[in-house]
Design a protein around this nucleic acid. Structure first.
Length: 415
RNA sequence: GGAGAGUUGGCUGAGUGGUCGAAAGCGCCUCCCUGCUAAGGAGGUAACUGGGCAACUGGUUCGAGGGUUCGAAUCCCUCACUCUCCGCCA
C-alpha cells in the first residue's frame, strides 16, 4: 500500500509514476471518494464530540436527581443523525480501502524505463555456456516422473526418485547453509497462511486466483516470503536490530491459473515446488544496499554450482505488483537454448510494511521498515538446470564440488 | 472431540457502567547526582487518524463483529485466537 498522504498531496505525480508500470490511476475517483470521506468524517466527529458532552451532562443531572427526559430526547435525535452519517462514512472508507489495496507499488526512480519484459536490462552475465546438450531433464532421466504424479494429483506435479530426489535435497541443504553463512536465521514455518498474512505481503485481495485455497481463511503459501515477512506483522522492531535477515525452505504452491499451454512439459512450471527464500527487514535508509547484498547472496549459489546465468533488472513496466525494484536471476537451460528465471530479488520499500504494519521506533517517531526478498534459489528449477548443464551426453551427470558433501558422490549414474 | 480460563499500551499487568486512554512495574527519552560504571532522584513516554500554515485542537481504538444504554474496557450475543485439564493421535 502506498502512503495515502502522498496520493492526496500529489495525485498527478503518483499517477504518472504508476503509468510507467502500466497502471491507470483514477485520480478523479479517488478525490471524489476522499472528498466525501473528509466532509463525512468532520460531521461524524463533531456529532461524536457533542454526544460526549451531552452524555456527561446527562450523568450530572442523573446524579443530582434532576429530570433527564428532555435531554434524553435531544441526545436521541443527535444519535439518529450520527448513526446514519457513520454508516455513510463506513461505506466510503471501505471503498477507499479497497482502492488503496488494489494499487500497485510506485516503481523506484532507478528502475529502468520500459513497458514490458522486452525492455528489461541485462546487467551481468556469468559462466560460459558449454553444454551442447539438447535433451531436456525428462529425457535425461526417467527418475523425474510426471505421469506417476498425474495419477497421484494431476498435471503440473512431479515425482522424483532415488538420486534425483536426493540431489534436490542436497541442493536445498547447500542453499540453506549458504544463507546461514551469510547471516540469515533459518526458520521452519507453516505452509499455510491466513488472509491477513496474504494481504500483508500483497497476494490478496487482488491475486486470489493464483492461490490454492484450503478453507475460508487459509491458503497454501505461494512462497515463503509470506510467512517469513508476516513473522513481523504488527510488530515494532528495534531500530538497532535492522536489517533482520531470515530464511526458510518451504514448498510453494501456485494454481498457475491462466498459464494453460505454458511450460507444460517437465518441472519448469509446477503447482508445487521447493524453494529457499531470503527475506530482509531493513531500515528505509539503506534498503537498496540490502537488496544488492541479497542479490549477491542468491548469485553465490549459482557461482558455486558453476551454472551459467545472467542477472537482469526489470523495467518499470515489468515489475511485480508490490515491487519498486527487481532483479531477476536467470539460469541457462540448454534444452530450451535460453535463460530461465530462477530467482527474483525485490525491494518492496514500505509497500508491504504498510500493509503488514511493520515499524520501528526511534526518538524522532515511528517509521515503516522496508522489506526485501528473493529466492535463494528455486530448488526445482535449479535441479533441472543442473541436470541439463552437467549431463555428459550419455550416462552420467556431474555433481558440482559444493554439493558432494551433501550428496555423497561426484556423479549420478543414469540408465 | 469434552470441560474450564483468558485476549488491555513497546512489554508485564490492574481495572465490573460516567471522574478510564486506562493504576503499578519494566523498558525507553530528558535532566540531576556520581571520578567512571552500577545504584539513586525529578520529569516525560500508546497507536491510528481528522481539522489547522502553525501554536493547537478534535475523533477512534482495551481480540473482531453485533447488541443493551443518554453513556461500555466493564453488561449480553456471535466469531477468531491463546492457554490449562481430559480424550485421541504422528
Amino acid at each position: 500500500m502506498i502512503d495515502i498522504k502522498k496520493l492526496r498531496d500529489n495525485p498527478e505525480l503518483v499517477k504518472q509514476a504508476l503509468r510507467k508500470r502500466g497502471y491507470d490511476l483514477d485520480v478523479s475517483l479517488f478525490s471524489r471518494l476522499d472528498g466525501s470521506r473528509k466532509s463525512l468524517q468532520v460531521d461524524v466527529e463533531n456529532l461524536q464530540a457533542e454526544r460526549k458532552k451531552l452524555s456527561a451532562e446527562f450523568g450530572k443531572l442523573k446524579s443530582s436527581g434532576d429530570p433527564t427526559d428532555e435531554l434524553k430526547k435531544i441526545i436521541n435525535s443527535k444519535n439518529d443523525k450520527l448513526s446514519s452519517k457513520e454508516d455513510e462514512l463506513q461505506i466510503i472508507i471501505s471503498q477507499i480501502d479497497s482502492f488503496m489495496l488494489d494499487m500497485p507499488n510506485i516503481p523506484d526512480d532507478s528502475s529502468p524505463e520500459g513497458s514490458d519484459e522486452s525492455e528489461n536490462v541485462v546487467i551481468k552475465k556469468y559462466g560460459k555456456i558449454i553444454s551442447t546438450n539438447k535433451l531436456d531433464h525428462l529425457e535425461i532421466t526417467a527418475d523425474i516422473d510426471t505421469d506417476l504424479a498425474s495419477k497421484l494429483a494431476g498435471s503440473r506435479f512431479s515425482v522424483l526418485k532415488g538420486d534425483i530426489a536426493k540431489l534436490q535435497r542436497s541442493l536445498i541443504s547447500f542453499m540453506l547453509d549458504n544463507a546461514i553463512k551469510n547471516g540469515y536465521e533459518e526458520y521452519y514455518v507453516p505452509f499455510m497462511a491466513n488472509t491477513d498474512s496474504l494481504i500483508g505481503t500483497g497476494q490478496l485481495p487482488k491475486f486470489e486466483q493464483d492461490l490454492f485455497k484450503a478453507n475460508e481463511n487459509l491458503y497454501l503459501i505461494p512462497t515463503a516470503e509470506v510467512p517469513l515477512t508476516n513473522l513481523f506483522r504488527d510488530e515494532f522492531l528495534n531500530e538497532d536490530d535492522l536489517p533482520i535477515k531470515v530464511t526458510s525452505h518451504t514448498p510453494c504452491f501456485r494454481s498457475e491459473a491462466g498459464s494453460y499451454g505454458k511450460d507444460t512439459k517437465g518441472l519448469i512450471r509446477q503447482h508445487q515446488f521447493e524453494k529457499i527464500e531470503l527475506v530482509q527487514i531493513t531500515h528505509p535508509d539503506n534498503s537498496m544496499t540490502c537488496l544488492n547484498e541479497l542479490l549477491s547472496n542468491a548469485c553465490q549459489i549459482l557461482d558455486a554450482l558453476k551454472l551459467p546465468y545472467q542477472v537482469i533488472e526489470l523495467c518499470k513496466g515489468d515489475l511485480g505488483f508490490s515491487s519498486a525494484k527487481t532483479f531477476d536471476i536467470e539460469v541457462w537451460m540448454p534444452s530450451q537454448n535460453k535463460y530461465r528465471e530462477i530467482s527474483s530479488c525485490s525491494n518492496f520499500t514500505d509497500f508491504q510494511a504498510r500493509r503488514a504494519n511493520i515499524k520501528f521506533k526511534n526518538k524522532d517517531g515511528n517509521y515503516y521498515v522496508h522489506t526485501i526478498n528473493g529466492s535463494g534459489l528455486a530448488a526445482g528449477r535449479c535441479l533441472i538446470a543442473l541436470l541439463e548443464n552437467n549431463y555428459n551426453g550419455s550416462d552420467s551427470i556431474k555433481v558440482p564440488s559444493c554439493l558432494i558433501q551433501y550428496f555423497g558422490s561426484d556423479t549420478i549414474k543414469i540408465n
